[in-house]
Write a protein that binds this DNA or RNA. Structure first.
Lengths: 322, 322
DNA sequence: CTGAAAGCGCTTACAG
DNA sequence: CTGAAAGCGCTTACAG
């Protein structure tokens, strides 16, 4: 029904191979034929059918981006740059929010097997047993998906340590750590390790709330921290949502910030989206996104890649530290 | 190289047609053969190649979502629900941020022609001449893309009118309107129309700043409003980013909110992302997303659809009105 | 440089 | 109910 390469070939008086070569800009085609073909294409309003060429070439030029939820500043920003970078390489991004659906990762892997996508970026944090990743181009953020997949992360340990020292320099005597524990082995855990080392180094008493947490439980977690450690004069909060909720909780409890309580957050790349100016260890989201895509494309092409790529955060002063 | 339907057929001792029927759950296949086929599939670790079936069936099961920028609360939320709803119908969403790239809409239409996607949701606002939309399943938000495409919108006029009346009831004598003018004919313009009608009805002096604005110009636009109409005691702000920036600007100018200046915003669905609690005409983003996908799928299937779908907003009181 | 032909891996009338 | 065959619209050795 629709116009195909055959119709063009017939009208131009050449073989289908030649038309194909013109479409794909192969220089081998002689100029006169090229012109004829182009004319025929225009005349017939021909557009190549990608499904066909993809089947032949066995590549989809699509990649999947799996995030826990797009409707979250960090992931939205990540999605934005992932799409932008992928686009530069001629890839499209299929967006998938795993939400709480544990099986979404399996599904994406299935999609790779089914040749719906060429590869995937995983930003979710579930654990799986016995997943077959043979020949599945996957890259990740903050953790190696299966101990083998390349991933991009930030300098969690050093940045946390520096931030904590800054707080201590600014007078904090009782510094706490508030976070949500990753479900899997993740570089995010380095933040707690840094905290423990600092506490140790300065002879402080550890005040930690760092349990596995689901989206939506921020408020109760923040509250429980304040109940346990209401006398903290400084808190390092790991994670954007948690930081925000914690800030609000502290305010509701009439804490003077930063006078009585200083707060530093890891993740706060979103100053433009809220008017609360947290002092923040800012992750280089854009660079993380671009790197992760470059890694993925290398994997798709079968090239060697680094397993661990560490990018540097930036310490940004806001109004929650002295 | 990879295992195909032929290999399965051979191992199971049936024809490829039968294997295909098993894959697609056609009940016609006799149980004994079905079992054999399934066994063979498992044994060979067979996964059907989607590219092939898509070519045959001439459907990609992908749709494109074109937003100005995903890294924005409204669009992120929209993307989230669009993906969720599309998923229910077995469609995947290819995310595209148009950014300032005017030609992205054309590109998406090209992709439909090239059979990369089955259809598209447009949430961008550029104008095009002579685009051929014949047989292109496209749906939109807040405006009809070409006067023909179905779209989903909210009750802009009524909601704005109600909000303004609320402000007047709460004592506002000098109510202004701050917005960014849509580049194309859009239902968003109804907000300004409602404002003008209210001003007229109550015999007020119109105070309007509503020019075409690019992403990033919020601050200067907000400032220019305050310079022109510094004596306003109430402002209706159209748009999320603008509301937030305007609020900050007013605060910097030491306006007491809501005592001296009341603010109502159209769009503020993002209370969880910032701790600024604006009184807001809240758009039903989730419902808009779901409706837009259902419309699109109808179009893809060639069914009739309504051209204009209007959903109802909710007036949510925050701390910026008395 | 280029045409004819095989083939990518499915689906689907068709005939039985 | 099911097998053999045609065909979806391309790409790509192959031979010339």
């Amino acid at each position: 029904m629709s116009v195909t390469i055959k119709d063009v070939a017939k009208l131009a008086g050449v073989g289908v191979g030649t038309v194909s070569r013109v479409i794909n800009d192969e220089k081998s085609v002689i100029e006169s034929k090229r012109i004829k073909v182009k004319q025929a294409m225009k005349q017939l309003k021909y557009t190549p059918n990608r499904m066909a060429s993809r089947l032949r070439r066995n590549e989809t030029r699509n990649i999947a981006l799996l995030v826990p939820i797009v409707d979250h500043p960090f992931f939205a920003k990540l999605a934005y740059y992932v799409e932008d970078e992928a686009d530069r390489f001629g890839y499209s991004v299929i967006l998938v929010s795993s939400q709480q659906r544990v099986d979404k990762e399996r599904e994406i892997i299935e999609r790779i097997h089914r040749r719906e996508v060429d590869g995937a970026v995983f930003v979710t944090h579930y654990e799986h047993e016995g997943i077959d990743l043979e020949g599945c181009p996957i890259v990740s953020i903050d953790r190696s998906f299966d101990g083998n997949t390349p991933y991009v992360t930030s300098n969690n340990y050093d940045a946390t340590k520096d931030a904590l020292k800054y707080m201590i320099e600014r007078g904090c005597k009782k510094v706490g750590f508030l976070g949500s524990k990753p479900l899997v082995k993740s570089e995010v855990s380095e933040r707690e390790r840094a905290y423990l080392d600092v506490v140790n180094e300065y002879g402080l008493t550890p005040m930690i709330v760092n349990e596995v947490m689901e989206h939506g439980e921020e408020k109760s977690v923040a509250t429980s921290f304040m109940e346990k450690f209401g006398d903290a004069d400084g808190v390092f909060v790991s994670g954007y949502s948690l930081s925000q909720v914690f800030y609000e909780t502290a305010q509701e409890m009439n804490k003077k910030i930063p006078k009585d309580l200083q707060i530093v957050s890891y993740d706060g790349v979103f100053r433009q989206w809220h008017n609360l100016s947290l002092t923040t260890v800012e992750q280089p989201v854009e660079e993380m996104a671009r790197q992760v895509i470059r890694l993925l494309i290398k994997k798709i092409r079968g090239e060697e890649t680094a397993t661990r790529t560490v990018l540097t955060t930036r310490f940004v002063l806001g109004k929650t530290t002295k």
